Simulated assay, not measured.
Amino acid sequence: MGKTIDDPAVMRYDTDGRPVYCRRMAPPGLATAAQLRTERLSVAGLAPAAWLYYTRLGYRTCALYKRAQARPIRPLTTRQRDALAEDRVCAAVWAAEVLADPNTVFLDTETTGLLGGPEPSYAVEIAVVDVSGAPLLDTLLNPRRSIPQEAIAKHQITDSMVADAPTFSEVLPELTRVLEGRRVIIYNSEFDRGILTTELERHYRVHDPFGASSLWSTHPAACQWMATLRTECAMQRYAEWHGDWDEKRQRYRWQRLDGDHRARGDCQAIVPRLRVMASTAFTVAAA
């Protein structure tokens, strides 16, 4: 039997008896890893003491740790600081090269949800813009399934808006033409490449059903299309330039794009971020 809930801030208890607190109702002695980082405290080696319930594209919980058990973050060594500085220089130079490349375009999708969920996620909007921000492709897409409310809350694209929109299959020839020979920059390329692979898999399963080797492997035509797509991740590069090192995960922390959650707007939001990075390419290197 589970514990009796006698605290109005507690929603339930997990299987180990740890409380799951309602949003913004956790006691002051507990904090998330992100909150503790702002206090220069590390949760490395600590097990969660409780959980915090919140909603973001679905119902989720976030780990809470005891503030008294968190340890001060050790200062970086000279060698570590030099390595971070070198990564920042490389990221700044990369941004300058991207902006100077006439073949550069930016791609973004809005979707029915996140990758790895119980149901496949499909695109409801796709955009490709050039370095000046001019759209080369900008269209809603009919995902041929209902858009969950959690996704609508993020990008404001509803079922009625996409009812008469083209399908991905109908847009695919134009998308292929626009991206051919291009250097494609994506903010979180792993996500958008996953969405494109899902859409291509569905397309080729219908249009070339006998070309697939099995039901459990990606259609060869989808793999071939993706193999020709030359993408680079602006989120990874910006994280390197921003330099917020995550000691626990041994990588740089991702930084939000802060776009408008529409495909064209998010593409255009990448450009000024790269310009800021590129503006430091020589000053950072000379420091």
Rank of each mutant, 00 (worst) to 15 (best):
V43F: 12
V20Q: 11
R145P: 01
V129C: 12
E119D: 10
Y204K: 03
G259D: 09
D246W: 06
C223H: 07
S279G: 14
C22F: 15
G58E: 11
Y122S: 12
Q156F: 04
A96N: 07
I195L: 04
A287M: 12
G265A: 06
P209Q: 13
C223K: 11
G113S: 02
Y13F: 15
P118V: 08
E119K: 05
K3H: 12
H207L: 10
D101H: 01
A70D: 09
S121P: 00
Y59D: 15
R67Q: 14
E201Y: 09
P19Y: 14
L215A: 14
R193C: 13
A123N: 02
R74Q: 15
A68L: 05
Q255H: 12
I126P: 01
G265T: 02
V129H: 05
A123T: 08
S160N: 08
T111P: 01
M235F: 02
A26M: 13
R60E: 15
P48L: 13
P173E: 08
M161G: 03
Q224R: 11
I157V: 05
T4V: 14
P135R: 00
W225G: 10
R67S: 13
T167Q: 03
D208S: 11
Y21V: 03
R56K: 14
Y21F: 15
Q35M: 14
V184S: 07
R145F: 07
A222S: 10
L36I: 03
V206Q: 13
T158R: 05
R18P: 06
G116S: 06
L114M: 02
I73S: 08
P48H: 13
T197G: 13
P27T: 10
S214M: 00
H219M: 10
C90E: 13
L41A: 10
D7M: 05
R40D: 15
R205V: 07
T61A: 14
R37I: 10
H219C: 07
S213V: 09
A153Y: 05
T112S: 08
P27W: 13
I147G: 06
A153S: 10
A234R: 00
N142E: 05
M235H: 02
D108C: 06
L107I: 03
M11E: 14
D130H: 02
L107R: 00
M277W: 02
A34S: 14
G181V: 03
A92N: 01
L41N: 08
L57W: 10
D244I: 10
L179A: 06
T283I: 13
S169I: 00
G194D: 02
H207K: 09
K248V: 15
R24S: 14
W51M: 13
V128G: 08
R182M: 08
C22L: 15
R88E: 15
R183D: 14
I152K: 06
R74K: 14
T167L: 01
L179I: 03
D87G: 01
R256L: 09
S146N: 03
S160L: 11
A234C: 10
L57I: 11
E232H: 09
L64H: 12
K66F: 12
P8E: 10
N188V: 05
G133S: 05
Y54V: 08
R249H: 14
Q236A: 10
P27D: 06
T280C: 11
G211R: 02
R256D: 15
V105I: 09
R67E: 13
D244A: 11
Q236N: 09
W245V: 04
P148G: 06
P19A: 03
L64V: 01
Y238P: 01
L179Y: 04
L99K: 00
D164L: 09
T112G: 02
Q255N: 09
Y252C: 04
P102I: 05
